[in-house]
Amino acid sequence: MLNCREVSRLVSESFDRRLPWRARFLVAFHLAMCRICSGFRRTLRLMEREVRRQAGNLPSPEDPVEQLPDDARQRLDEMVRRFLGNGQ
């Protein structure tokens, strides 16, 4: 029998690889009886789905947070100008 700590570790692992059949069986058996671990798995599943869905998108230009700081912007502009100025 696995305890909740071990099950939670396997549940997390199941997002990164296909578990061996014996581990899958033990996890399924535990989840059938344990509401907390079931809730944990559901939470992870929804979190992973939402995070993956939003992560691939280039953030929208209107999103005001974490704008390129002014000094960084100047350095980047300067780099581009120099590069283009060198006639490359």
Partner: peptide, 19 residues
């Protein structure tokens, strides 16, 4: 913070993300 020494949850996952 998540498990006691016997590997039992200290956290409750009764609530879940809304979807």
């Amino acid at each position: 913070p998540y498990f006691d020494s016997a590997g039992r949850w200290r956290v409750s996952w009764a609530a879940t993300m809304q979807q």
